[in-house]
Write a protein that binds this DNA or RNA. Structure first.
Length: 130
RNA sequence: ACAACAGUUCGAUCUAUCGCUGCGGUUACGGAUUUUCCGGAGACCGGAGAGGAAAGUCGGGACAACACAGAGCGCCAUACUUCCUAACGGGAAGGCUUUCGGGAUAUAAAGGCCCGGGGGAUAGAAAGUGCCACAGAAAAUUACCGUCCCGGUUUCACACCGGGAUAAGGGUGAAAACGCGAGGUAAGAGCUCACGGUUAUGGCAGGCAACUGCCAUGAAGGGUAAACCUUAUGGGUUGAAAGACCAUGUACACUGACUGUUAAGGGCUGCUCGCCCAAUGUCGGGGGGUAGGUCGAUAAAGCCUGCAGGUGACUGCCGGCUUAGAUAAAUGAUAGAAUAGAACAGAAUCCUGCUUACGGAACUGUUGUUUUU
RNA sequence: GGUAUCGUGGCCGAGUGGCUAGGCAGAGGUCUGCAAAACCUCGUACAGCGGUUCGACUCCGCUCGAUACCU
């Protein structure tokens, strides 16, 4: 699988975003907070992801962009296993990753944290229908 | 060569791998009026892809919607002159003023002259009103001490009491009623005069003008208009989440005509005058809310080179170029060159100016030091 | 994206150009066997920079920070 991150993989429907935060389940992998929800939506990809960095933590747009880019890279490079498993089990997943720390962490650490998140998602969604 | 200051310009590049957003081309594929068109979401190729401040949203516009019978008052903004500009509270050149440094002249001082740098929201305080704490007699028609004159008490003087003249001296203050000298006087005072400063009017000369120089005739008038105010000029409101369209879709928001009332109320810029509308009912038009898409939206007061004009801001002409356009929102990540994740910082309708933030690099000018000639 | 308002001690909050009120909290003292209450005393501030003015929390400009509204 290619390590792309296209528009269809991004969560951009307002109604779906509202639904995710109303009904979704969350867990923390500091400094990240993940919210997920199983849902049906029309896309070739099994996941739609929203990346968010709160404005009150970082006043400068440059800092927010940097963190969002690092999270996105971490997800893009490591998403393959989750995608194949979910596609095999016919699960569609809405997802939000929010950054919660006040210090800007380097890419390597963020990538490790995202790997932890992906493994936890594999555990919970890989087993349910497996 | 180094250092300091000022100004101008620039705002780290390349390689590899994996990615993102438009655009152009080819194509798998799909459609049709079937050997040619149209579409093309997937694939491949090509090329493009944040800033000097993109920021603050401070000034001015473009653009858009709504409003617009008119009059008065009010409110807001601006304020030396000429020019530049689409416009501006921006810019250029100049005037005036203030301050700093240097020089010359002079020696009673103040001030003036020449050169250079910095600052100035820089109309009017001689239309009116207000305010100027504390201190001081007095903060704008001033008499506390002092000085002088007259009268009284007293033999005279001193002293005391009463009446007057006086802004030269004292002290206070941020500021004290033009400075200094001479005359003058009972003592004094621009009261008078010379020199000088401020200011008003008129004339002459220079300058497009602000203004400057000279001459004449006056005047004495503290400061404050980023206090009210006066004068002149300008100002309709809102702000792309403006606004236009498409699809979806169904409540009585809106609206036209007629009827009807003249009271409340509403609209027209904040107020007043003035003008307009009107409850209810009938008939007709029309499509609320929610959630999407397309346009607005990127070729423009555009950029670059050259020539010409202008002290300059800038303008004209020839030629060349096309330079982000996203929509939960694209420029990244990793490794290396390299000692190294370099500063401030991310377009959101666009343009123009101002202000603020900023590691570093280059150039120009001034000053200083050192070396060589 | 746009519009408006505000910033005064640790906290709340008044302040018409002339020494920055007051309350709560804190510290010390009086009182008490010890505390509380009461009373007395004290310290700590005008967001920053510049301008106007003799003088600025106040007037003007810029910057920084916070809040509210439109949507």
């Amino acid at each position: 699988m290619k390590q792309t991150f296209r528009k269809d993989e991004r969560l951009h429907r307002k109604s779906l975003i509202t639904k995710l935060f109303e009904d979704g389940n969350s867990f923390n992998v500091q400094p990240l907070r993940v919210t997920t929800l199983r849902s049906d939506f029309q896309s070739v990809y099994p996941v739609q992801l929203l990346i968010s960095v709160p404005r009150h933590l970082y006043k400068r747009a440059v800092d927010r962009n940097l963190l969002k880019r690092r999270i996105r890279e971490g997800f893009r490079k490591n998403k393959e296993e989750l995608y194949t498993t979910l596609a095999g089990n016919r699960i569609k997943l809405l997802m939000c990753i929010r950054y919660q720390s006040k210090e800007i962490l380097p890419s390597r650490i963020i990538q490790d944290k995202i790997n932890v998140i992906l493994r936890r998602l594999l555990e919970s969604y890989g087993k349910t229908s497996g």
